[in-house]
């Protein structure tokens, strides 16, 4: 590992640590950082708080801590998945949405919101809150599986077919989503609109645990795929010649991304631009080597999402800005700047 790579990872890790601290210490209720630390220390050593301290402890331990962990997982997973997609598609503009996860999840989510009431009534109370996340997760996974089946022939997955079929399926899912929006009530429309901008609200340990296995799977995959993606950057034939099982790598990458992003979308809605911008930024800073890029993307993605969430819950407090509004208003201008730079490189 080069010195710049080590330094890059160290910077990402530091930023993530700062974001975690900020997310635990900053919120509409002001609790001094020293108190926050004390509460965490107290809880870790098994103590129970009382009185006014109890309320602060509830805020830190039951609201901010699960929210922070969830944000970390969602941000890290989304950004790592973006890096994997850009590697597989060999295109710096690829994002996890290309394999249909987001559009499929959005369609399933809006269907659940508009048509799911009779189904929700059948669910036992303790899983009721999971109806929407589960629907979104299955919708995302199902769409990716369909796309993969379309793009695969004789055990070979054509990336070009995947891309074009993805556009078609995305348009189709968009049309169906539009139809659901058309028949929805005011309340359902509002639910879906806010869902589609993403939010870490409602973060509980149960939600954290439900998405943890998929995220761990994705991170594990990132650890394994680094070399394969580096080889793929040279071309599929070249990668094959240096001993990479190209088809297997593609299959794993797509499955891992679908599961990870599907889980992220399920627990936090659609949070835009993190998956696109974070790997890009890092490629500029530390180079294109995937063995460093993938873990660094995960670290910086977590940091960015947590920072965005701190902004979302404090800028308009006690109202909460949609998370996607914050990430996109930072991400989109950056993306444009990136395009302009690329244009200069291409035409200059």
């Amino acid at each position: 590992m080069t010195r710049s790579a080590t330094a890059g990872l160290a910077v990402c890790l530091t930023l993530l640590a700062l974001a975690v601290l900020a997310s635990l210490a900053i919120g509409p209720i002001s609790i001094p950082p020293a108190r926050v630390w004390e509460i965490l220390w107290h809880a870790a050593s098994g103590g129970m708080a009382q009185g006014r301290a109890l309320r602060e402890a509830v805020v830190v331990l039951d609201i901010r801590l699960p929210r922070t962990v969830l944000g970390l997982l969602v941000g890290a997973g989304t950004a790592a998945a973006g890096a994997v997609m850009q590697g597989v598609f060999r295109n710096p503009l690829a994002d996890p949405g290309l394999v249909g996860v987001s559009s499929g999840a959005a369609l399933a989510a809006v269907m659940w919101i508009v048509l799911g009431a009779p189904l929700a009534a059948l669910l036992p109370t303790f899983v009721e809150g999971f109806g929407l996340p589960l629907a979104a997760f299955l919708g995302g996974l199902g769409t990716t599986a369909l796309l993969h089946a379309i793009a695969t022939r004789d055990g070979r997955t054509s990336i070009a077919t995947l891309l074009f079929a993805g556009l078609a399926i995305g348009a189709l899912a968009g049309a169906a989503t539009g139809l659901m929006v058309f028949i929805s009530s005011d309340q359902q429309l509002r639910d879906f609109t806010f869902w589609s901008f993403g939010s870490l609200s409602g973060a509980t340990w149960a939600r954290v645990l439900s998405c943890l296995p998929f995220m761990l799977g994705l991170f594990l995959l990132c650890g394994m795929l680094g070399r394969a993606l580096d080889a793929l950057a040279l071309g599929e034939a070249e990668a094959f010649h240096v001993g990479i099982d190209v088809e297997r790598s593609k299959r794993f990458a797509i499955a891992g991304v679908a599961a990870g992003v599907g889980a992220a979308v399920a627990v936090a809605g659609v949070v835009g631009f993190v998956g696109l911008v974070v790997p890009h930024l890092l490629r500029l800073a530390i180079g294109p080597g995937n063995r460093v890029l993938l873990p660094a993307s995960a670290l910086l993605g977590g940091a960015l999402l947590l920072a965005a969430d701190v902004a979302a819950r404090t800028l308009a407090s006690p109202a909460e800005l949609p998370l996607g509004v914050v990430t996109a208003s930072v991400g989109a201008p950056f993306f444009l700047w990136l395009l302009l730079r690329r244009r200069a490189a291409l035409f200059g």
Binding site: I29, V59, R67
Partner: peptide
């Protein structure tokens, strides 16, 4: 408006009022 969870907790409401057709389909317990 959507509200931040800890601000809603700190407001300490003594009752939650919802439309009869349920707050986004969630049961009272949920």
């Amino acid at each position: 408006k959507p509200a931040v969870d800890e601000a809603m907790l700190a407001a300490e409401p003594e009752a939650i009022i919802v439309m009869r057709n349920g707050a986004g389909g969630l049961s009272d317990e949920a």
